[in-house]
Nucleic acid binder design. Structure first.
Lengths: 204, 204
DNA sequence: CGCCGTTGTGTACGCTCGTACATATGGGAT
DNA sequence: ATCCCATATGTACGAGCGTACACAACGGCG
């Protein structure tokens, strides 16, 4: 394994390894040693590239954010003004939550770590803005921020309580947040049913 | 259960100490030793009463939940159908977030810990239901759940990104979630302004 | 009154952690 | 070709962790 000297991708590989470690064992399992082992580099290498674990987490969170941003971008429907925005978002969440729990846990854990680690807060703020930006183009900035907040809240309820994700519910309440630009469902008073325009998508 | 070396307050004091420790140093700082020191009991005492740290966290989270439930209950306005529910909730959040950050961090950290610790999930679920229950009496269960989700999301955005809490914004978007039961603000399209009935409250 | 099992306490063990540091290496400036 | 220093590595240290386990205390029972 020698001949690893001068490895310009070393830093990147360490970040990738950190993400895998957090995905597998959570932030609690993130140490210089576990990352070194996962990346197959000596201990000194991780401490050299990232003096502190916070630094490593910042890099990992930033990279995880980019991954999520790609997922959003790849789902073109968000920009198309003819689609039902609430339905589109609800479907997106369904897809995300329907995948491996590991990936979702990973991103949320890094994101939520900002609660105690001020170093992560700017990155968390970036994430909020990045997600809200494309939504702002469909509605307005205030609504966009609220949509992000509600999506966060719904995802957390699913993840924290173990309740299964209910896409119709998500579509309904997301729709209520949209300013009355033509349709959505504030008319379904005492509980949503099937009263929805827009295409239907299978939940998770 | 008889009174051997009967110290019924011992267990409770350990829980209280655990809450203080989490408030000060976060979950990462929660160990049998730190709790023992904080509670001024020997190390063996904490391991005796709580075989595992998860067990201790469950007790701590449950107790923290009770504290929050009291805060809600003490704010009578929620039950009074004449008050503006969205404004009431926004004010409640303002009060909560305006207090010491420690307390808010504490509850959220324990709550969010359920993401990785299945043992905490039933307690987290209880909390959701406890908060949603009184809201269900004012609207319907679906709306109540959505209100809780949105409040969570807004609080998290404040806590994770460092953005200051904007009570008028919260009131506006919470109001949009309410089914059109008479008033609130889905009429303010492209941005909220001052268009609100109900009393005004100073933000944090 | 004196034994006994439940309940509480103190200490010591093995492990992993972050950190520091002395050393090796090799690309690029000269 | 030579030298220099940012890069890379291996090891050692002290601190803190969960856990185990032997021992002290004391109410109930014979």
């Amino acid at each position: 394994m020698a001949a690893r000297r001068y490895d310009p991708e070393r830093r990147q590989r360490i970040i990738d390894a950190a993400i895998r470690v957090v995905g597998r064992s959570g932030i609690a399992g993130l140490t210089h040693r576990t990352v070194a082992q996962e990346a197959d580099v000596p201990l000194g290498s991780t401490t050299y590239h990232f003096k502190t674990l916070d630094e490593l987490m910042v890099a990992a969170l930033r990279q995880a954010n980019e991954g999520f941003a790609k997922v959003i971008a790849s789902r073109g429907g968000l920009e198309d003004p003819r689609t039902d925005l609430a339905a589109e978002l609800a479907a997106l969440m369904g897809e995300w939550l329907g995948g491996e729990r590991t990936g979702v846990e990973l991103e949320y854990e890094l994101y939520l770590a900002a609660l105690r680690r001020p170093a992560l807060r700017p990155v968390a703020a970036e994430w909020c803005e990045e997600v809200a930006a494309p939504l702002s183009r469909r509605t307005d900035p205030v609504t966009a921020r609220a949509l992000v907040a509600l999506m966060d809240g719904i995802c957390l309820q699913v993840l924290l309580t173990g309740t299964p994700y209910d896409e119709a519910y998500a579509r309904e309440v997301l729709g209520r947040l949209l300013p009355g630009d033509g349709a959505p469902g504030t008319d379904t008073r005492g509980g949503y049913r099937t009263a929805h325009r827009g295409r239907l998508r299978t939940g998770t």
